[in-house]
Nucleic acid binder design. Structure first.
Lengths: 212, 212
DNA sequence: TCCATTTTGTTATTCATTTAACAGTGCAAA
DNA sequence: TTTGCACTGTTAAATGAATAACAAAATGGA
């Protein structure tokens, strides 16, 4: 029925696969060729069972005596989570956070590149910021559709979140990572991931208070 | 047995309470005094049942006809998640992300203030950055214990994460928000929250690919 | 040869969280 | 009054995720 075999993988597993890959790449750089589930687990501070279960879900089998072949596994995870041609990412809001994210990503992931930024401040448009070209938000439709960009990171001020998301969706963005403190809504065919930094910090503060 | 009544509140509820409060504050600024569960739900794009269930868990009761009293509820959430005197927060790693977080937080939360930063780069120490004083990491014990800081945000490069966390724990930090791509480990009496930006973006990319 | 060890792959169980169901209540209008 | 409506508060069911349990396989050594 579906043309892909991965529809039923839990969201949390997808996140971990991304982390497994990073750990595996570091291990590979150190010259390691094989790795056991408990070694991966130790690197991520999770359990070996969880690693094996995740790998089972993507249909990868290791060898009983040598564990998993690092290069094979990196390759398989890549096949699962990357797009073959790579995906371009746009960033909306060139404030401190936006620029920090761009710098943070530079060169980190070959298949996922932030290629353009948008802002409404004339001082931040029609020039390069942190190495990427930035345009006024009014050019969104033109640029997003020309470049075939499907993924957007939202870092505008909270009170502009709703309107910016509306424009993003209209322009054809299909996946949004929302870093504003404002929850937004998207149509069913757009994937939304929200992260609220303040909530996270308040959560930490709460548990620190409770433990003390 | 326990001296607090909130030990059994789900983690996810704590996160949402922080978001409820923000939404309530905005509503209050607009002159609203009462609010229904379905109105809060609409603001956060969640369900009214979930709002009511969360509020039930913290023992707050609304009025059948007028809904919830906004000021009461803001106050109650504050009592639950804030410390009466406020809590100071230190940031470790004064790179782009560290500075962005500081600017992002400025004046946002009265009870939670980033008051000091640490780095190992001499160019970034013994001066103010983004308005807060920054010191060399070797002063950590002195400053953290003098100031009574219990919460730390980690934004150092991934390969320095483990060592920095070790120092943080040693210096008395009891809650860590880890924004590096490296998972870290802490003793049982330290609360750890990790967020991996790259995993999040790769997750978005994965679901965009799958839907398309 | 056979036994102990170590590891994988998978099913079963437990735990956490969300969603659904519904009883109870107060007001307003007939 | 009484009926209907629009809420709240709470218990029950369903879903999602992590953990536990264990069979099966491969190796090395007794």
């Amino acid at each position: 029925m579906e043309n892909n075999r991965y529809k039923n993988i839990p969201h949390k597993t997808i996140e971990r696969l991304s982390q497994y890959r990073r750990a595996l790449q570091i291990a590979a750089e150190k010259g390691k060729t094989n790795i056991f589930s408990h070694e991966i687990a130790a690197l991520l501070h999770i359990t070996a069972v969880q690693v094996r279960r995740d790998l089972m879900l993507i249909g990868y089998s290791g060898s009983l005596r040598k564990g998993y072949d690092i290069n094979d596994l990196i390759h398989l995870i890549g096949e699962l989570i990357d797009s073959p041609k790579g995906q371009k990412v746009a960033i909306f809001g060139m404030g401190d956070l936006g620029r920090a994210i761009i710098n943070y990503f530079q060169g980190k992931r070959e298949k996922l590149q932030i290629t353009v930024g948008f802002d409404i401040n004339p001082e931040k448009t029609n020039r390069k910021i942190a190495g990427i070209p930035c345009y006024h938000l009014e050019k969104i439709t033109e640029i997003i559709s020309n470049e075939g960009i499907k993924i957007g990171i939202l870092t505008v001020p909270g009170d502009q979140a709703d309107e910016t998301v509306r424009l993003m969706v209209e322009a054809g963005i299909k996946g949004i990572l929302n870093y504003t403190p404002t929850p937004v809504e998207v149509p069913d065919d757009v994937y939304l991931e929200e992260y609220n930094m303040i909530s996270s910090l308040e959560k930490v503060a709460f548990y620190v208070k409770e433990k003390g």
